[in-house]
Design a binder for these strands. Structure first.
Length: 791
DNA sequence: CACGCACGC
DNA sequence: GCGTGCGTG
């Protein structure tokens, strides 16, 4: 539809979408591409374009690389070479799609939906229109304030710099210069620094106490480089410890390439063949020999016997020794004589050190220096000049060595290694800026006092950096680059989740920072266009309302019908002592603040932590979280988490009963269904593998909840998009975030439009979607200039 | 490319 | 639990 639209053709909708149809028949497939579907369902694979028209990308040397590029479509269509093939391809593509459509149609016709209808009915009635609706939303896009994003991006970068600076300066005390070069976006570096040496929970092996990271010089500040130079200078000035084995001194030969070494060997009449190390040794021997009087320099390598006659001749020539008519042994003798002569000369010089102070010990480097100064050897001169130049250049990479502080980790990654997520770092930091400060774990570790305080402040900075990084990369810069020439961003909306929820890409509109945590107010960047306003409306506890309705759970239905704070009511049901407190009048469950201050403390204040737990549990149930995940979040044992979950279920026995039945059905038939009767195949529910089985059974009870919410949201969106009233008032649907919708339209009609949106959302009922036993609560408001203000 | 981490509901 | 996307190594 988009492709035709871009070509100036507006089609109303689809005849069908093979991807959506295939997903409706089976959500468990890994791929829904035309290629994969035709291969599996029709037994006739549609060959991908890349395989037919692809061209291998050329390597630097001109040979064909592994990567295949697809030439621009315009070229394939117009160039004679590919044109006919392209037409055939396109026709086959269309035919495959049609065949696939017919195949999937037959399949959906055999799958029952509700009453005596089948899934093809479902497809025509709901899903096909929904597919069209999604392309409407994609085409409309959302207006973003690019200039605002640019400003905030600068601010975020400034904040980041401050935090990085703060942490590095603190870490300098423990890590020295390396702290200033550390990459704080690297979890590997961070975990090495904090927790290195601790046990990997999976492999049971200790983690590295020290790691060296190759960092690009360009990413390292001049300040850090200065610190490195200072450190190296101090190390050099330090007296050497006795007993320590010196690392062998590096010299210029170590830096020469094999070719260069060979040239020099030839120049100085030495054997040219052999390994690189042998060449180096030979040359060192030669230069020491030339300089030394030490008669023990017999150790100097004498390779003459193993050299070929031609090489020996070359060697002699290099030393101006006559070779005419000489045999191999003569050549060797002459060369050895020449060596002895050199030794004698050196010995003479050594006898009178005053005469020539250079006779003292000299390093290879010094010897080479002299050789260049005195000699006419151009090869040596050039090679050394090359090495000097290279050494003068700054290295492209700097080794950053990170040693562990040796702290105890308390959370681990999937791979068993210590984890450094924001919540771990928050625990270390505590709240050092509170009055009085509320220090975290780091305080004790660094011995309390000023040191402890400084550590907590540093860790506080660390908690901010990871978040700022995602804000910049994911939202601030990405939204600016994705906006079109009219400053609208067009995401791609996909029905590709296991439960039937939507997902959004490029950009992901569904993970924009939530209002409370939106430090940089990114939602402010999503605006209504000139003269227009936004309506934002969302369901309250949609999943839990559906769960209450599906399970016929008395306590939940009562709680929803009573209204008020659902999480407080959950806490009330879970903890006997809270129930008693409310019954005895010690605290209030609800209060109308319109009547002034409450006469007694509120439940949500008096039992704040219980309410928080209840709230987390409510979400966990809706999302299908496990007790394992819950224990991770709360930092408690799995038994404790299990006990809390049990407390939740105890006050809702109908839910537990429903879950049991649903799991049994999944085990028996290998499938589960959503509120609207969509299927989710769960082949692993029939399996023995405990891990897969557990997953499948959890999915079996979660999909009706999450998928049911997705069904409701879909129907509400269809109602909104089809509403004649909204059309008349000039309002259009822009976006959906699972249980939230956003519309844009003229300010004058916003109140009336808002009422209509609420109506659509509260009454999404259609064929296949029965009315729930609890009302669907919708929160929201209108007349907003941007998404953020819709709080 | 696997992984860890961040964001959302 | 379900998603997307980024940076690192």
């Amino acid at each position: 539809r988009h492709v035709l639209w871009n070509g100036g053709i507006d089609v109303l909708g689809f005849g069908g979408d093979t991807m959506h149809m295939a997903r409706l028949s089976d959500t468990g497939r890994m791929k829904y591409s035309l290629e994969s579907l035709t291969e599996d369902l029709l037994g006739q694979r549609k060959v991908p374009m890349k395989e037919i028209f692809g061209e291998h990308r050329l390597r630097k040397d001109g040979s064909e690389g592994a990567l295949v590029d697809l030439p621009p479509i315009e070229r394939l269509q117009r160039e004679l070479k590919s044109r006919e093939n392209f037409i055939r391809y396109s026709a086959f593509d269309a035919k495959s799609t049609y065949n696939l459509y017919m195949h999937l149609k037959d399949r959906l016709l055999t799958m029952s939906w509700v009453k005596d209808l089948n899934l093809m009915d479902y497809y025509h009635m709901h899903m096909r229109p929904f597919g069209e609706l999604l392309t409407d939303l994609e085409r409309r896009g959302m207006l973003v304030a690019k200039d605002y994003l640019a400003d905030v991006e600068q601010q975020a970068r400034e904040d980041r710099r401050g935090h990085v600076q703060a942490f590095r300066q603190w870490a300098f005390k423990y890590l020295g210069a390396d702290a200033l070069a550390m990459n704080l976006a690297s979890s590997k570096q961070l975990t090495t620094f904090l927790f290195g040496g601790s046990m990997n929970m999976k492999t049971k092996e200790p983690t590295e106490v020290e790691n060296v990271f190759k960092m690009p010089r360009a990413d390292i500040s001049d300040e850090a480089m200065e610190a490195y130079r200072e450190r190296d200078a101090q190390l050099k000035a330090l007296p050497r410890d006795d007993g320590e084995v010196d690392e062998p001194e590096m010299d210029e030969f170590d830096q020469m390439k094999a070719g260069e070494l060979k040239v020099l060997c030839k120049e100085y009449g030495l054997k040219v063949s052999g390994k690189k190390a042998e060449l180096q040794q030979r040359l060192r021997g030669h230069f020491q020999l030339m300089a030394s009087s030490d008669s023990t320099s017999d150790s100097v390598i004498d390779d003459y016997k193993s050299m070929s006659v031609q090489d020996l001749r070359d060697a002699c020539k290099a030393r101006s020794i006559e070779t005419k008519g000489k045999k191999k042994n003569d050549l060797i003798k002459d060369l050895r004589d020449d060596d002895s002569f050199a030794r004698e000369i050196s010995a003479e010089i050594m006898k009178n050190p005053q005469k020539d102070s250079s006779a003292t010990y000299r390093t290879i480097s010094e010897l080479l220096e002299e050789a260049v100064d005195t000699g006419e050897n151009d090869a040596l001169k050039n090679i050394l000049a090359g090495i000097r130049e290279k050494n003068a250049e700054e290295p492209k990479y700097v080794d950053v060595t990170i040693k562990s502080l040796g702290m105890e980790p308390d959370k681990f990654t999937v791979g068993g290694a210590p984890s450094a997520t924001a919540d771990v770092l928050r625990k270390l930091a505590g709240d050092p800026f509170a009055d009085p400060p509320n220090y975290g774990r780091a305080y004790e570790f660094f011995g309390g006092g000023q040191e402890g305080h400084d550590a907590c402040v540093a860790f506080f900075s660390l908690t901010a950096i990871g978040s700022i990084d995602t804000m910049i990369a994911n939202f601030l810069t990405s939204l600016q680059t994705l906006a079109d020439h009219q400053k609208r961003v067009h995401c791609s909306l996909n029905i590709n989740t296991e439960t039937g929820r939507l997902s959004s890409r490029k950009p992901n509109m569904q993970n924009q920072p939530a209002l409370e945590k939106d430090k940089y107010k990114i939602r402010q960047a999503f605006k209504a266009s000139a003269g227009n306003r936004l309506i934002v409306a969302d369901y309250g506890q949609l999943e839990l309302r559906l769960l209450a309705s599906m399970t016929d759970c008395t306590s939940m239905i009562e709680a929803f019908e009573a209204g008020g704070d659902f999480h407080s009511r959950t806490a009330l049901g879970m903890f006997k002592y809270i129930q008693d407190a409310v019954e005895n009048g010690e605290c209030l469950l609800e209060w109308d603040y319109g009547e002034g201050e409450p006469p007694k403390p509120m439940l949500k204040d008096l039992y704040a932590s219980e309410r928080r737990k209840a709230k987390t549990l409510n979400f966990s149930i809706a999302y299908g979280k496990t007790s394992h995940g819950l224990s991770q979040d709360w930092g408690v044992s799995q038994q404790e988490a299990d006990a809390m979950l049990q407390a939740w279920y105890d006050s809702r026995p109908e839910v537990e009963k429903w879950q049991k039945e649903t799991k049994a059905t999944a085990k028996k038939y290998g499938l589960t269904r959503t509120l609207m009767g969509r299927y989710r195949h769960l082949p692993h529910a029939k399996e023995k593998n405990m891990k897969m089985l557990g997953h499948a059974l959890r999915a079996s009870i979660n999909t009706p909840i999450q998928g049911g919410a997705a069904d409701v949201a879909m129907m509400a969106m269809l109602k909104i998009n089809n509403s004649e009233l909204l059309k008349k008032l000039g309002w259009i649907l822009l976006m959906q975030v699972h249980d939230e919708v956003i519309l844009e339209g003229p300010e004058e009609t916003s109140e009336e439009a808002f009422e209509e949106v609420l109506k659509c959302m509260q009454n999404p009922w259609v064929l296949g979607l029965d009315k729930t036993k609890v009302p669907l609560l919708v929160d929201g408001s209108c007349v907003h200039d941007n998404w953020y203000d819709a709080k």
